[in-house]
């Protein structure tokens, strides 16, 4: 990585960015698109078995931050990344780390459900196949069932596996996308505003799912809805203009944040 914009300014965020439960860690993460600095030194731990919510105004760099965690941001050639991202203490940019295999350890869910235009079954089976997780058809179908069961979706999808995924409601599609992300057995799940395109009821089901998945995964949730972040996360990080302003236990952040900017944002006042 190039070192074009070295700055040794410490990240003076309020709160403890380190976590004793850290599974993923980023240190002084900086991202630049052309001459625009979009992330300006973000350090943050994301703990195992908990949901870390990332909140902040539109354009703050939340999605960019999330895309750094699975190296997706590098797909953009105008983009320059600096800093370290560690998964279980291992630098994800270290030479020799294979990006595709690495991405298998990290699942991602997008704002708009984007299932493949295939059957419900195929949406989950595809990931299993490309990651070489199955050797024969019968193993595949039993693994698909297992994935749906683990996601708590077997009752819902088990009887219509051959239906086209696009015939599902948006809420169902998003849950299918989460199941698809789980299929390759990741350790971390990144979710970028997974409820933003859903109605309240479907959003509530996704939130319930996130809360259950937390038992087994490290979840990073970018949420546009503060209420949603407050409901499902244990730790909340507030990002603004590419900087981490404050991080802390969610209950604390939503009742008594320390930084005045956090207070203003969480109280719902416009900038």
């Amino acid at each position: 990585m190039a070192h074009l914009f070295v700055s040794n300014q410490p990240t003076a965020a309020v709160g403890e960015w380190r976590s004793p439960k850290a599974r993923m860690r980023c240190e002084d993460l900086r991202v630049r698109f052309g001459d625009r600095e979009v992330l300006r030194g973000v350090s943050l731990d994301m703990g195992r078995n908990e949901v870390t919510a990332v909140i902040g105004p539109a354009g703050a760099g939340k999605s960019t931050f999330l895309r750094c965690l699975n190296r997706m941001v590098e797909a953009n050639h105008h983009c320059e990344v600096q800093g370290r991202v560690l998964l279980d203490g291992e630098d994800i940019h270290a030479p020799g780390v294979d990006a595709v295999r690495f991405r298998g350890r990290i699942g991602m869910v997008f704002p708009k459900p984007n299932p493949y235009p295939k059957s419900i079954y195929e949406n989950v089976a595809y990931g299993l196949r490309i990651h070489g997780l199955v050797s024969c058809k019968s193993e595949e179908s039993s693994l698909v069932e297992l994935v749906f069961r683990q996601a708590g979706l077997w009752r819902e999808f088990g009887r219509r596996l051959l239906a086209p995924a696009l015939s599902l409601t948006p809420g169902e599609q998003q849950r299918l996308c989460i199941a698809r992300a789980l299929a390759v057995n990741p350790e971390v799940i990144l979710m970028d505003e997974p409820c933003s395109s859903l109605d309240l009821g479907s959003g509530a089901k996704i939130e319930q799912m996130i809360d259950e998945l937390r038992q087994a995964y490290t979840i990073v949730l970018v949420s546009h809805s503060l209420k949603s972040a407050a409901r499902v996360s244990q730790r909340t990080a507030f990002i603004r203009e590419g900087r981490l302003v404050e991080v802390g236990p969610t209950a604390m952040m939503f009742t008594a944040p320390s930084h005045p900017l956090t207070d203003r944002f969480i109280s719902g006042y416009s900038e």
Partner: peptide, 10 residues
């Protein structure tokens, strides 16, 4: 009406 949070909630 406002579901107050942070200092407003307090």
């Amino acid at each position: 009406q406002n579901a107050p949070l942070a200092s407003d909630l307090r």
